[in-house]
Design a protein around this nucleic acid. Structure first.
Length: 415
RNA sequence: GCCGGGAUAGGGUAGCUUGGUUAUCCUGGGGGACUGUGGAUCCCCCGACUCGGGUUCAAAUCUCGGUCCCGGCCCCA
């Protein structure tokens, strides 16, 4: 038996229905915020992902050559494709550009809880604007999406990469070492960061100050401790968020978001129920367009890990009620199958979701099937009722039955 | 890439320590008892030892390897 490749999944009808339901929910929230949906290819020129990434990214890239000897890669994320699309064909559109997308991404990683090799992301980008309002829009959208799904236990943490970057630069950390130091600071590996900075002749006092900055964590009141322009920026960001009704965010200057294309605000959301892989959302402001041959344009974006957030909801006990169909048509006897087909066709044309027995089952088994198909009504087509151009309509939940003229059937089902 | 735990019908499981007839039970699926009424009962049927090698008279059971799953590390655009 052939099974699905490691780290991938089949989605059976019940689960697929649930996923589509919540996906639709996210989509409608994004639309409500004035974002418009886009879609980019699942594979791209490998260059697109290699340009801005370090060796780790490369190791986990699903890259291959096609028959035309082109170097391609399955997308590991969707921000780069979105910006490529912007540079290719949207750069003359009125700003700001607000887009969102949903789709699968691929990373060759070791699967574990909430981590797959094929996984789904729901992301949004605001392109061409660099105001605090822009960042607030992104965070507010992320928060509204998480709220809409009904997740209770989550935390949004906002940082500003400019603070640490500035501090490191002032302290004399050379540009090419910055990323390395930031990486250690992100993980709070002070014992490793300290000798690294000592080697760069950074004074002990300054190292302590740097460490202190990464420890600036807490409610919005800690903003006062954030120095300089970033502090002012975060202040106005929080003010806007609060005006929009987004409360309870945390400030955490230790949020560094690993990679070095972020330029200012960065944020993450996590759901503690998930354990090791608890991050459900991440984003920030960045400039990428010039890397892909466009002008330098400021953007803010984020992505929600769809699989993870669904997992978190499950762990919180948020249950999803499966949909059923409106009606299941069952002929009483063999000679009425054509009549049943006729009624089924009529109902379907009228927009009633409707199914009928196609296995030649007897009535008892057909009703049983109707029940497992979650039909609201069974439409029993029998000789006696047909004499008055009627059928029996059975409420599957209550068992109540009524004789209904065929011409009124649609109305009865929809009412 | 590293560490640990696993894999028995579609789903959930017993058996494995101590190798030995036809691999247990529940559920599910198909048909029937019921010729015009479901989720009840009874009967019949379908359906599994993850794959490959080794030890042995004999392997679901012991052993080695592959694959996949689960938890964690690394990483996380």
């Amino acid at each position: 038996m052939i099974q699905c490749p490691r780290g991938t999944r089949d989605f059976l009808p019940d689960e697929m229905e649930r996923r589509r339901y919540y996906e639709g929910m996210l989509r409608s929230v994004a639309l409500r915020f004035g974002f418009r949906e886009t879609e980019t290819p699942i594979f791209e020129d490998a260059e697109l992902f290699i340009l801005r990434s370090g060796p780790n990214v490369l190791n986990e890239l699903y890259a291959f050559k096609d028959k035309g000897d082109r170097d391609l890669a399955l997308r590991p994320e969707m921000t780069a494709p979105a910006i490529r699309m912007f540079v290719n064909s949207m750069s003359n559109e009125p700003k700001p550009i607000k887009i969102f997308y949903f789709g699968q991404c691929f990373r060759y990683e070791r699967p574990q809880s909430g981590r797959y090799r094929e996984f789904f992301q729901f992301g949004a980008e605001l392109i061409g604007s660099a105001t605090p309002e822009t960042d607030a829009e992104a965070i507010a959208l992320a928060a509204a999406m998480i709220e809409a799904l009904g997740l209770k236990n989550y935390k949004i943490r906002i940082g500003h990469i400019g603070v640490l970057r500035q501090k490191l630069a002032d302290a004399g950390v050379p540009k090419e070492k910055t990323a390395e130091v930031l990486q250690k600071l992100d993980k709070k590996l002070y014992d490793e960061a300290r000798p690294m900075m000592e080697d760069l002749n950074i004074g002990t006092g300054e190292i302590e100050e740097i460490f202190e900055l990464t420890e600036t964590v807490g409610g919005t009141e800690v903003i006062d401790k954030v120095p300089g322009e970033p502090g002012e920026y975060l202040k106005s960001l929080i003010r806007i968020l609060s005006a929009m009704g987004v409360e309870g965010v945390e400030i955490d200057l230790g949020v560094v978001r690993g990679l070095d294309y972020y330029t200012g605000m960065v944020f993450e959301a996590e759901a503690p129920v998930l354990g090791a892989e608890k991050q459900i959302c991440g984003g920030g402001s960045y400039t990428l367009s010039e890397l892909f041959g466009g002008e330098k344009v400021f953007s803010t974006g984020f992505a929600i890990g769809f699989d993870r957030i669904l997992l978190a909801m499950e762990k919180e006990g948020i249950s999803y009620e499966q949909m059923g169909i409106d009606a299941y048509v069952v002929p009483v006897s063999e000679d009425l199958r054509i009549k049943a087909a006729e009624i089924t066709g009529m109902l379907r044309r009228a927009g009633v979701s409707c199914d009928m027995d196609i296995m030649g089952r007897k009535m008892a088994k057909a009703l049983k099937y109707a029940s497992s198909a979650r039909a609201r009504f069974a439409i029993i087509v029998g000789k006696n009722e047909l004499e008055q151009e009627s059928v029996t309509m059975r409420d599957m939940a209550s068992g109540d039955q009524a004789t209904v003229p065929i011409i009124q059937l649609v109305r009865h089902i929809q009412g």
